[in-house]
């Protein structure tokens, strides 16, 4: 079998391979170093940043649900200034593509962060989170109203030379409308999907389990929703898609490529198996090789061809 070319081009950046890690599940890139060599990854996406430091929500922040995980961390992060001072010097040295993830509570928040994060910072791209379900106005109103989404993407695009990846919320009636809006705003790529809003109630306490009441659902439970959205969006817009949502095995990843994703991201799957990225990468390569494909790119959107 010929070697499969795993190189992936997305949003103007070249990735060693199409396997990334999801924001909020991989810290700032060092936490999993003992389990998964970071240079084996196509890239990592950092924990979401806000202009000011945030302590986030109270605990409990997590609750396991059938084949899933509800989380309400609430964007705990060190804030932009501390990130630039203490984290950026380390993450820019990581031997992989590093994507920063930014969240905000106003248009100005996003602009402030985008302005501070430029190509010379050593980052590969900016993922704009307009979809956090776990804080009040945690960007989610930007992610559920097409006009606001277009505006915020347009505003960050105007102030940074980094490629912009818009991370969309699945908590909308029409994901295609949102994708079109951020394309109009100037997004270079899309991340699909963020978590689905959910909740869980403790039968003994007769109260919500999460201190925040609601949380974002991730894990295998949401994968069919994510695959459907990738399918729909890939038919409607020209932007490359980073597919995510419940990927824990290589078969899941291949499903996303077939649906139209150009790269995939592993989030909650890392918690289950910290070597999931390595195993999934190997599985993708083997799948392509067995079918005589020269490049992983040949897989993208293959299920659409009638």
């Amino acid at each position: 079998m010929c070697p499969v070319d795993l190189t992936t081009h997305i949003a103007g950046i070249t990735l060693r391979n199409p396997v990334l890690t999801g924001s909020g599940t991989y810290g700032f890139g060092e936490e999993y170093a003992a389990y998964c060599p970071v240079d084996a990854l196509g890239g990592i996406t950092l924990k979401g940043l806000t202009p000011e430091p945030r302590l986030g929500n109270e605990v409990p922040r997590l609750v396991e649900t059938p084949a899933g995980l509800l989380n309400a961390v609430g964007l705990e992060n060190p804030g932009l200034e501390e990130f630039l001072r203490s984290y950026l010097p380390k993450v820019r040295k990581l031997p992989t593509a590093v994507i920063a993830n930014i969240s905000g509570f106003s248009l100005e928040d996003y602009v402030q962060m985008a302005r501070a994060l430029q190509r010379d910072s050593g980052l590969a791209a900016l993922e704009v989170n307009i979809s956090c379900p776990n804080v009040k106005h945690g960007g989610m109103h930007f992610g559920t109203d097409p006009k606001s989404a277009e505006e915020v993407i347009g505003a960050v695009k105007a102030v940074t030379d980094l490629p912009i990846i818009a991370k969309l919320s699945p908590n909308v009636t029409d994901i295609v409308e949102m994708a079109r809006a951020v394309q109009s705003g100037g997004a270079d790529a899309l991340s699909l999907i963020n978590t689905l809003l959910g909740m869980s109630i403790d039968l003994d306490q007769q109260r919500p389990v999460l201190a925040n009441t609601f949380g974002g659902l991730s894990g295998p439970a949401i994968r069919p929703v994510a695959v459907r959205m990738v399918w729909q969006v890939s038919q409607a817009v020209d932007l490359p898609i980073i597919g995510m949502g419940g990927i824990t095995r290589w078969q899941d990843a291949v499903e996303f490529f077939l649906a139209g994703a150009s790269a995939i991201s592993i989030g909650t799957g890392n918690f289950v198996n910290p070597q999931a990225p390595l195993e999934i990468l190997q599985g993708i390569e083997d799948y392509c090789a067995k079918r005589g494909m020269a490049s992983v790119h040949e897989l993208v959107g293959l299920a659409h061809v009638s």
Binding site: G24, T25, Y26, G27, E31, Y32, A34, Y35, K47, G56, R61, L62, L69, N71, V73, E76, T268, N270, F271, P274
Partner: peptide, 9 residues
Amino acid sequence: GCAVGACLG
């Protein structure tokens, strides 16, 4: 969640 300090759960 992760048990290694990545998820802040």
